[in-house]
Nucleic acid binder design. Structure first.
Lengths: 145, 145
DNA sequence: CTAGTTGCAAAGAGTTTGCATGGCG
DNA sequence: CGCCATGCAAACTCTTTGCAACTAG
């Protein structure tokens, strides 16, 4: 498809800041705006356009994944922690409180296998978010919005 | 489930058109814009604002569900076929060709039960979309975008 | 020096809102 | 007649793009 070898990736402060952020917060699920705010407050301000462009590059190079946060309020970006984590398990997102549960469980292998064998469909764990209600929200409280 | 007693739902042509559309296309996954175009072409034009407001009402009353179509390009709306179908099973959406597979399978009960028991999370089938690649797209072709 | 990167601001796409009018009951 | 629904256009949010200046290699 595409060879990145012809691409000369310059190492700029902005890019390093972003990479560094993800390295320090491997499980962070952040929007472009949150990143913008984060760096704006830290003094090392990065323009939004640059954030989007850097994130795009990271998505394309497979460093980061992008998904929609459920409300259409803006895409969320998260580090792809190859070999350890988030691209291997599912995410349960509470539609009430917004909590994200990282579900690392062998049952999911079974789940994937079932879907593959019975429905001829290859599940993309990294992109799939299962919506529902977490324990606290489903047990009682519904008062909060 | 839900009592709409305080709500006086007037029966307008626009609303009926939309309800009718969904009744005739129970499995349709459409965007607001597609609906707008559809009715604009049919003579019975409905303004976009009205489409959004009607859809909102339908979502709130549980007639229709809204989800994001994977690219952030706009929300997709689909009839909730209460009692038969779509709110009871999962949807598999191919990130390549966009196909939506309705997965009606007893295995899902097991899946839900597992998540409930082991992860203390109540899955919302109607809202959850599992992303991945369908048979045709994963088997060979990857050339198309 | 060359070419990828950045910033700013303007352009776009999708969705929401304000306000006056229209229509159901 | 009262009140919800509709239409239009402006407002808004998130994201992308054009272009000139900048900087890593």
């Amino acid at each position: 498809m595409d060879n990145g070898e012809s691409r000369k990736n310059y190492r700029t402060r902005q890019q390093e800041s972003l990479e560094n952020y993800f390295r320090l917060n491997p499980q962070a699920c952040v929007t472009a705006d949150e990143l913008y705010m984060h760096f704006a407050g830290s003094g090392g301000k990065i323009s939004k356009a640059t954030i989007y462009r850097c994130l795009d590059r990271m998505v394309e190079s497979g460093t980061v994944k992008k998904f929609l946060s459920g409300g259409g309020e803006g895409a969320t970006y998260q580090l792809i922690d190859s070999g350890n984590g988030c691209d291997r398990h599912f995410h349960l997102k509470c539609t009430c409180c917004g909590a994200v549960i990282h579900m690392d469980c062998e049952f999911m292998d079974e789940f994937e296998r079932h879907i593959m064998e019975h429905h001829n469909f290859r599940v993309d764990n990294g992109r799939t978010i299962i919506y529902g209600l977490c324990g606290s929200c489903s047990s009682g409280a519904k008062s909060e919005e």
